[in-house]
Design a protein around this nucleic acid. Sequence first.
DNA 1: ATACTTGCAAATGATTTGCCAGTGT
DNA 2: ACACTGGCAAATCATTTGCAAGTAT
Lengths: 134, 134
Amino acid sequence: MAAVRDGGLRVTSARRLLIEALWEADEPLSAEELLERLGGRSDLGSVYRNLEALERLGLIRHVHLGHGPGLYARSSLGPREYLLCDSCGAHIAVDPSELDEVRSLIRRRFAYEARFNHFPVAGLCPKCAKERER
Amino acid sequence: MAAVRDGGLRVTSARRLLIEALWEADEPLSAEELLERLGGRSDLGSVYRNLEALERLGLIRHVHLGHGPGLYARSSLGPREYLLCDSCGAHIAVDPSELDEVRSLIRRRFAYEARFNHFPVAGLCPKCAKERER
DNA sequence: ATACTTGCAAATGATTTGCCAGTGT
DNA sequence: ACACTGGCAAATCATTTGCAAGTAT
């Protein structure tokens, strides 16, 4: 809560509840899922506004896993980059270091600095890839 | 047009106009941009329905470059995979073979079969990456 | 006290869907 | 003829914004 105040935000009950929900979660949640966990003691507009504010402070991040809503998680959940299956929606989160080789390959070829924390690596998971082999 | 009929679709004027617009374009366009090129001689509902139908036949593909609307292009525009800059929106299209090394690295590490034709590689383009170096 | 926030409603952007008159085969 | 489509409107999903009343500092 200190970080919130230091960031120039007031500690309101809607905000505190949202933060608690985010801190209790061990995977990214949508705004709607978060609102449910608040027992309706807020509304979607406020949830989105607060998510944006907390993200500006760097306390949380959000990722887009395919279509569907954005998913939010506390930054302290650890740096994560994602691989998503286009076919079944399965996804895995990995430490950025696991993608360093991929990143440097892309850097050498295209001079792009690839990031898979906001938009994942898309493709086919092992199971779906196998199913399409034939 | 033969491919359309073979696919079980009728060749209607709305459909033909849409196909012409797609075939004249040399980069992916949104449904709205396509409708403009039809001079309003159709409507968004039909455009989306036809885009979906043509995509089912494999005649076109669509890509999501960041937020914003999906972008559609004829498949014959050539196999393309995309790199997108999260910061300035710049993007480049490359032949899949240029990403084969990246793909096999990801395959070895995660057994995922990466595809960057529907969702791009996201990150920072050379210019934006340089600006953040300091 | 007063600036920041909330909850509610309405607006927005992208896309989908229901309906029925119109048209390709 | 008859099923497939088109155009129009309304619905949906995710997210943003306006506003007046409420609250943290």
